[in-house]
């Protein structure tokens, strides 16, 4: 099973790296946001799947990443994407800590509602402080340099579907590896214990609130990295990114792919992005079909697409 997972991961990464030579630029600009959401979902699911805390406000941190990239590039003239990622990630952690300090005292619906409320606060903040945030038009994001290279000879699309795409897939691989280590670490074990039975875990010495705070901060960092990629892809940090329905989409992706599995949310991110864009092209009732999909998943396949895959796999191997 372990080797099967390894083979699957390598195959998926190889496919992602090979895509630009197979698909048109249009499709690659669709794969890019999927990669961005996959990174955000890695973080989101540390909190949801592993820690058992369902946030309805994580779009906030995606937006902090996007606005971070925008402010750093167009207002402060910082070009280095590495620096942009670190600084917007740090900003997201700084924004997450006060929210987490309050919300991790609660669980379940209270935690969800508190995170939702903070998300709404941030969204209205973007409109209120027009001078900093550009209100409903948002802020332009300039093209960053990657490892100091500005790729001046490439036009916008060529940059995005070329070096930027490879860079982001590389980021997904690295951050995915880091998250894999985190969930299998002693720290990760304590998070799961606190999810399974808070009181018992405390009696076994698990510092539940403190560890939840750390998990929350890590998840915010990942979401900000995803947000920065999204903003560079569209060239704009947009207040819609912070809207609460966007938080709902993160939840959707995790459930669609299956939050009980490490890879579920990643599968969910890719499936959701393509499903959404295909449906939007086909019908103006795309929200209806998305909603219906979610209902079918929750009712018939509560372990998500990865759960369906696992069942098929075991059935094939039993024969």
């Amino acid at each position: 099973m372990k080797t099967a997972v390894g083979v699957f991961v390598l195959a998926a990464l190889a496919t992602l790296f090979a895509l630009p030579s197979v698909l048109s630029a249009y499709y690659i600009t669709l794969v890019l946001p999927a990669v961005a959401y996959a990174i955000a979902l890695l973080g989101f699911n540390l909190l949801f799947g592993y820690t058992g805390l369902l946030s309805f406000g994580h779009a906030l941190y995606v937006a902090v990443g996007a606005y971070g990239a925008a402010v750093l590039s167009s207002k402060l003239g910082i070009k280095s994407f590495e620096l942009v990622l670190l600084l917007s990630g740090a900003a997201a952690v700084a924004a997450a800590i006060p929210v987490a300090l309050l919300s991790v005292r609660y669980e379940k619906i209270f935690f969800g509602i508190l995170t939702l409320a903070f998300g709404m606060l941030f969204h209205s903040f973007l409109f209120k402080f027009y001078d900093i945030t550009g209100g409903d038009t948002g802020i332009r994001v300039l093209r960053p340099s990657l490892f100091g290279n500005e790729f001046k000879d490439l036009d916008k699309t060529a940059f995005l579907v070329g070096p930027f795409y490879y860079y982001c897939v590389g980021l997904l691989a690295i951050l995915g590896f880091v998250m894999w280590r985190i969930v299998h670490s002693p720290f990760g074990l304590h998070l799961v214990a606190s999810r399974e039975n808070r009181r018992k875990s405390e009696y076994l010495g698990v510092r539940v609130r403190f560890f939840r705070l750390i998990a929350f901060s890590i998840s915010a960092f990942y979401c900000a990295v995803g947000g920065a990629i999204l903003a560079i892809n569209t060239g704009q940090a947009d207040p819609e990114l912070a809207y609460w329905t966007h938080s709902g989409e993160l939840v959707f992706m995790a459930v669609l792919g299956g939050f009980a599995n490490f890879f579920g949310p990643l599968v969910g991110a890719f499936t959701f992005i393509f499903l959404k864009s295909e449906l939007m092209g086909l019908t103006q009732f795309w929200r209806f079909w998305l909603g219906l999909t979610l209902i079918v998943i929750v009712v018939l396949f509560p372990r998500g697409l990865v759960g369906v895959g696992q069942d098929l796999w075991t059935r094939l191997h039993k024969r």
Binding site: I182, S185, L189, H190, E196, N197, G205, V206
Partner: peptide
């Protein structure tokens, strides 16, 4: 912990007792 194995359950306590809860990067 309903979904945790016997090994994992005992490991939770051992990790606390050995003060290893803040190890983020080593496989338990």
């Amino acid at each position: 912990f309903p979904a945790m194995t016997v090994r994992q359950t005992i490991a939770v306590a051992v990790v606390s007792q050995e003060g290893k809860g803040l190890r983020f990067f080593s496989a338990v």
